[in-house]
Simulated assay, not measured.
Amino acid sequence: MSEQLLTHEDWRRDLPLLAARDVQADAVDGMRKRLAELLDDPTLISRYRAAMDGQVVGRMVPSLPYLRRENREQQQTIEILKKAAVHSP
């Protein structure tokens, strides 16, 4: 969507920071109208999903030392693996 916004002059020109309030209001109004037009696009979410596909990192799986196990046998196995990992070259 940012690429689409930047194709319009309202989004590329410098903001009128030192201009009169009415000039500033006109600039913001032009930007608001163009943004509203793009947000009305019914394919916006599917285009976003397609653009982000493969870019978002999935939820990280906790590493072994941070796992909490209720089963005592499993806990012992984890302790052994942790000790082996610390002592391995």
Rank of each mutant, 00 (worst) to 15 (best):
residue 37 E to M: 05
residue 82 K to L: 11
residue 25 A to L: 09
residue 22 D to R: 10
residue 31 M to N: 06
residue 49 R to F: 01
residue 81 L to D: 05
residue 73 E to P: 02
residue 18 L to C: 11
residue 43 T to N: 10
residue 84 A to D: 04
residue 45 I to Y: 10
residue 79 E to T: 12
residue 51 A to D: 03
residue 7 T to S: 11
residue 71 N to D: 15
residue 19 A to I: 02
residue 27 A to F: 03
residue 45 I to Q: 13
residue 33 K to W: 12
residue 6 L to E: 04
residue 37 E to L: 05
residue 16 P to V: 00
residue 49 R to I: 03
residue 34 R to H: 07
residue 88 S to M: 12
residue 57 V to E: 11
residue 36 A to P: 00
residue 81 L to N: 03
residue 72 R to W: 12
residue 55 Q to F: 09
residue 44 L to D: 04
residue 33 K to C: 09
residue 54 G to D: 02
residue 8 H to Q: 11
residue 70 E to K: 15
residue 50 A to M: 01
residue 54 G to P: 00
residue 10 D to I: 08
residue 76 Q to A: 13
residue 16 P to K: 05
residue 32 R to K: 14
residue 8 H to T: 10
residue 35 L to H: 01
residue 80 I to R: 10
residue 45 I to F: 09
residue 53 D to E: 13
residue 81 L to I: 04
residue 15 L to I: 13
residue 67 L to S: 08
residue 60 M to P: 12
residue 19 A to Y: 00
residue 3 E to L: 09
residue 17 L to A: 10
residue 87 H to E: 15
residue 74 Q to D: 15
residue 15 L to G: 12
residue 39 L to V: 07
residue 37 E to H: 04
residue 86 V to R: 14
residue 50 A to D: 07
residue 62 P to L: 04
residue 32 R to D: 05
residue 7 T to E: 07
residue 20 A to T: 11
residue 67 L to I: 08
residue 86 V to K: 14
residue 80 I to K: 10
residue 58 G to I: 06
residue 1 M to S: 02
residue 48 Y to E: 12
residue 19 A to S: 05
residue 29 D to Y: 15
residue 26 D to V: 10
residue 3 E to I: 11
residue 42 P to K: 04
residue 54 G to K: 00
residue 81 L to F: 03
residue 53 D to G: 08
residue 76 Q to C: 07
residue 24 Q to V: 08
residue 11 W to V: 02
residue 24 Q to R: 12
residue 80 I to D: 11
residue 86 V to I: 13
residue 11 W to E: 02
residue 37 E to Y: 02
residue 35 L to G: 01
residue 19 A to N: 00
residue 1 M to P: 02
residue 49 R to D: 06
residue 36 A to W: 04
residue 71 N to T: 11
residue 21 R to K: 14
residue 26 D to H: 10
residue 21 R to A: 12
residue 54 G to S: 01
residue 80 I to Y: 04
residue 38 L to Q: 01
residue 71 N to M: 06
residue 40 D to E: 09
residue 12 R to L: 05
residue 83 K to H: 05
residue 79 E to F: 03
residue 54 G to R: 02
residue 16 P to T: 01
residue 68 R to F: 07
residue 15 L to W: 12
residue 3 E to T: 11
residue 62 P to M: 03
residue 53 D to Y: 08
residue 78 I to C: 04
residue 20 A to V: 08
residue 43 T to L: 09
residue 42 P to S: 03
residue 75 Q to Y: 09
residue 34 R to V: 07
residue 29 D to N: 15
residue 24 Q to F: 01
residue 61 V to E: 13
residue 29 D to H: 15
residue 20 A to R: 07
residue 16 P to D: 01
residue 37 E to K: 05
residue 21 R to Y: 11
residue 59 R to I: 12
residue 66 Y to C: 13
residue 57 V to Q: 14
residue 1 M to H: 06
residue 15 L to Q: 14
residue 81 L to R: 05
residue 82 K to V: 10
residue 51 A to E: 02
residue 58 G to T: 05
residue 20 A to W: 06
residue 48 Y to V: 13
residue 67 L to M: 06
residue 77 T to Y: 13
residue 80 I to G: 08
residue 58 G to S: 03
residue 31 M to A: 10
residue 6 L to R: 10
